[in-house]
């Protein structure tokens, strides 16, 4: 029981990270029907931006307040990552919009390979580790020497995720940008005829997705303390799985899917096999797509004859 509770706690933490990345996939898929393959690598870039910012703050500026530096890291990460994603959309996707269906996918895969290798060349192939942000933990339960703990790091991840999701939810439901996004999802041509700037709306979708991925990147760096150029692929696929599981196109679905994937992964690792934890994630992806392609909260697709 204690192990279970501990794994649930860890799973929610991991799931928050997946959920934040998953929103980027789900929004882009919703609006232009494309799997943004490079999104996982955008997340990876954000972990490096966070790493460099953290090092600048700690070693050069000597800022000791962890909360202040966390705030600055988040801000810088969100801005730079959004810029990266905006540029990718502008250069690699927009020229291909409305053309051959496979072209954007190949372009996105190319972008993914490019980003991964760019970071490898620019920052070196080794794992980069920094000392952990917070060491403190709260012991929630204890029985027979097994402690169920909740670390400060986890609390911060939960809090930041919750806060940003609320802000994000406000943007997509209450602002004109959110309305424009929903209009573009339904019918881009009609939306543009009614005066919605479709290009700008799509760009903003990429920007928002990237900003949330940057939050996930900062949390990832803070939680694990290690980043590597190859860290985009597997979290990216898992976040995509989360998006699919929740129902692609559905934003609450992405969050729920993320939490589920996070918990399944930690429970699987604890009870079955650590080696096969990625296999479990990929199997869920395949099973969900095959048997429940509309996901938990998505709309089913009816075949038109």
């Amino acid at each position: 029981m204690e192990v279970f509770i501990q794994q649930i706690i860890n799973g929610i933490t991991l799931g928050s990270i997946y959920g934040l990345i998953a929103i980027g996939y789900t929004m882009v898929f919703g609006i232009i029907g494309m799997v943004n393959f490079a999104h996982g690598d955008v997340f990876m870039v954000s972990t490096f931006v966070a790493l460099v910012t953290a090092l600048i703050l700690a070693t050069w500026l000597g800022i000791s307040s962890i909360f202040l530096s966390l705030f600055v890291i988040l801000l810088v990460g969100m801005v730079v990552t959004s810029l990266v994603s905006w540029t990718i959309e502008r250069l690699a996707y927009r020229p291909l919009r409305g053309s051959f269906r496979l072209a954007p996918l190949i372009s996105a895969i190319g972008m993914s390979i490019f980003l991964m290798n760019f970071v490898q060349v620019a920052q070196g192939p080794r794992n980069k580790s920094i000392p952990p942000f917070f060491q403190n933990v709260i012991v929630i339960m204890e029985r027979e020497g097994y402690q169920v703990t909740l670390s400060y790091r986890q609390i911060i991840i939960w809090a930041v995720t919750a806060t940003l999701l609320t802000a994000f939810w406000y943007i997509v439901t209450k602002t004109s940008l959110g309305r424009a996004q929903r209009a573009c999802e339904q019918d881009q041509k009609m939306a543009s005829l009614l005066g919605v700037d479709v290009d700008r709306t799509i760009s903003m979708t990429f920007v928002i997705g990237a900003a949330l991925a940057a939050v996930a990147g900062t949390m990832y760096l803070m939680y694990y303390g290690v980043v590597s150029f190859s860290d985009g692929f597997v979290p990216g696929i898992k976040a995509f799985t989360a998006a699919v599981l929740g129902g692609i196109g559905s934003i609450p679905g992405a969050v729920i899917g993320g939490l589920l994937i996070g918990m399944i992964e930690t429970l699987w690792s604890a009870y079955f096999s650590l080696d096969y934890k990625d296999v479990a994630a990929f199997c869920i992806l395949a099973i969900v797509l095959i048997f429940l392609p509309q996901g938990l909260l998505g709309r089913p697709e009816v075949e038109k004859v």
């Binding site: 190319g110 390979i113 991964m116 060349v121």
Partner: peptide
Amino acid sequence: YRMLLFGLAMVLIMI
């Protein structure tokens, strides 16, 4: 730079 250029080439040829 092999894969770096490979990825870049993929994007450029698609465009």
